[in-house]
């Protein structure tokens, strides 16, 4: 890694500028990267490790003079690669529900919203293929089609079709459960 070692003159300035860039990028993207990581790994700690590593790698690349054309897509791609690599080593994580990965260990242990989140994970995310889930997550985190295509190694033309399919599935599920609720409301007598 000697090529990345800062030279004595101007090295501090360069590192400082890059660090400022990192701070801005972090504020803008960390939450989205983390959520994407949780969706991929079903594990908060693994997601956070990957996010941290991605920012360090970004710093090293930039500090070494490398241009990054689309930093957002770059970071998402690195998080993806890191997590898919570690998932290859352990297949156990996929068996954990999303709700288990994101409900706990946070500042607000609210059982009601945890319950609703678990319910939602079962209802919606379970409908989607891994690729659909990733594609939707990336779009929900604000990536452009071109960036999503880059991260998932797809043709940009496929992104719209994937998203349309995801949204249709979610809408159908939503409509289905709403109809069921209306039916229960209307047809079944309430317990006194």
């Amino acid at each position: 890694m000697t090529e990345n070692r800062p030279s004595p003159e101007g090295a501090d300035w360069c590192a400082e500028t890059t660090e400022r860039e990192i701070i801005l990028l972090y504020r803008e993207n960390a939450a989205g990267l983390f959520r994407y990581g949780v969706v991929l790994a079903r594990n908060r700690e693994a997601a956070q490790d990957a996010v941290q590593e991605a920012f360090l790698r970004y710093f090293i690349a930039r500090n070494g003079g490398q241009e990054v054309e689309r930093p957002k897509a770059w970071l998402f791609q690195v998080v993806r690669n890191l997590l898919l690599d570690s998932l290859k080593a352990s297949t156990k994580r996929r068996e954990v529900g999303l709700e288990a990965a994101c409900g706990r260990a946070d500042a607000r242990p609210d059982p009601e919203s945890e319950y609703r989140l678990a319910e939602m994970s079962r209802r919606y995310w379970g409908l989607l293929s891994p690729r659909e889930l990733e594609c939707f997550r990336l779009r929900a985190e604000g990536l452009r089609y071109q960036e999503i295509a880059e991260v998932l190694v797809l043709r940009p033309g496929t992104v719209g079709a994937l998203l349309a399919r995801v949204q249709k599935k979610i809408r159908e599920e939503h409509e289905g459960s709403r109809r069921a609720a209306v039916f229960v409301e209307r047809e079944l007598p309430h317990a006194p």
Partner: peptide, 12 residues
Amino acid sequence: LFRLQCVPPQDG
């Protein structure tokens, strides 16, 4: 709701 619930650690 997922976005609301799934937040990174504060000291990230």
